[in-house]
Design a protein around this nucleic acid. Structure first.
Length: 222
DNA sequence: CGGGTTTGACCGGCGC
DNA sequence: GCGCCGGTCAAACCCG
């Protein structure tokens, strides 16, 4: 799709942005396609997601050599753009398990954890049961819906407060797959598209099904 | 005709 | 309890 080449991956962050803490950063080529992001995301996954979400990958933590490789790729392709990797308290509850325990142990020390108040954390905990794992990232693109290899059906659109651009709601068209995504434009910079994914796909991307019979283990976080 | 989009209605959570 | 707001539903509509 044309959307792929247009998209410039600029930032990967986790919900909710105001609660996030910078965890690390590295470079990606500016002309990296969204599909490529799916592959690179394996490294992101290893770098920032709990092991419960990476059991199907057999990958270890992102090493400095891997980062070096990414830099090499970037230099090969010319320009680079900083990709910031962030993690928020809001996602910690969503993931649960070891991450949740991590939150609990760190919270015992004071009123704040990652800049989040106790009352806010309580509300976060209250929501833990119902929310799917979520993450979002920001791309600079003139099209709203980026090609991530999956097929989506739009089920709603909403004008959110204090923004002039509507937020669109999409669901994966695959049966038994309950992954959703939200797409909205940044109020401060309409060129930036915020894409938020919720849940995990239980199938391979539609592109893989079309291109080969062997289902790829890559991309399955989207 | 089937699949996707649009859009107003509805619902539940949350703050006051 | 009430109103606001985000998220979802579903009927109508569109398009190939």
């Amino acid at each position: 799709m044309a959307a792929t080449s247009q998209a410039m991956l600029n930032q990967c962050l986790f919900e909710e942005p105001e609660m996030s803490t910078q965890m690390g950063s590295f470079s990606f080529p500016s002309n990296l396609s969204f599909t490529h992001l799916g592959n690179c995301h394996q490294s992101l996954k290893s770098f920032c997601l709990p092991s419960s979400l990476t059991t199907d990958l057999n990958e270890t933590l992102l090493s400095s050599s891997t980062l070096k490789q990414r830099d090499d790729i970037s230099s090969d392709l010319g320009r680079t753009h900083l990709l910031s990797l962030q993690r928020s308290g809001a996602n910690l509850w969503a993931w649960g398990g070891e991450v949740g325990e991590c939150v609990g142990s760190k919270r015992s020390g004071g009123d704040d954890h990652l800049g989040v108040s106790v009352t806010k954390m309580k509300k976060i905990k209250a929501r833990r049961k119902v929310r799917e794992p979520r993450f979002c990232f920001k791309t600079m693109s003139d099209v709203d819906v980026l090609d991530d290899g999956y097929k989506w059906r739009k089920y709603g659109q909403k004008v959110v407060k204090n923004t002039q651009h509507p937020r669109s709601y999409y669901r994966c068209t695959q049966d038994n797959c309950r992954v959703k995504k939200r797409v909205e434009r940044l109020a401060e910079d309409p060129r930036m598209v915020i894409t938020t994914y919720e849940g995990r796909h239980v199938h391979s991307p539609s592109h893989d099904l079309e291109d080969s019979e062997a289902p790829s283990q890559l991309n399955n976080f989207f």
